[in-house]
């Protein structure tokens, strides 16, 4: 069971500069926990203290925004690609 995670430049400080890292989990929630274990700070950048996804972080499974899938409970299978991208917004 391995999920490829694409890490944006602004979060590569948590991955020694690597663009992609591997992690495991049968849901996005489990993946976030495993990401944090392997790359301290990366999992924490995605979720708040209550365990929900940050509003201004976009997370995608195979290019689909998880807001339209199952959010933090989105199921994952071997070979999925998860992409992370801080939202760009302003006034």
């Amino acid at each position: 069971m391995s999920i490829e995670v694409r890490v944006p430049t602004v979060l590569r400080k948590h991955t020694d500069g690597q663009k992609t890292v591997a992690a495991e989990g049968s849901t996005l929630r489990e993946l976030v926990v495993d990401l944090e274990r392997r790359n301290a700070g990366l999992g924490a950048a995605l979720v708040g203290d209550d365990g929900s996804l940050h509003r201004f972080i976009n997370v995608y499974v195979n290019d689909e925004d998880v807001r339209y899938l199952g959010g933090i409970e989105t199921p994952l299978v071997d070979g999925d690609t998860v992409s992370i991208l801080p939202a760009v917004a302003g006034g």
Partner: peptide, 23 residues
């Protein structure tokens, strides 16, 4: 995605496609 006169929010999917190409 906000289509507002005072706010913008980049459409997440379009942004991902752009970012993937850049990366």
């Amino acid at each position: 995605a906000a289509r507002s006169m005072t706010y913008y929010s980049m459409d997440p999917k379009s942004m991902l496609y752009a970012w993937n190409e850049i990366d």
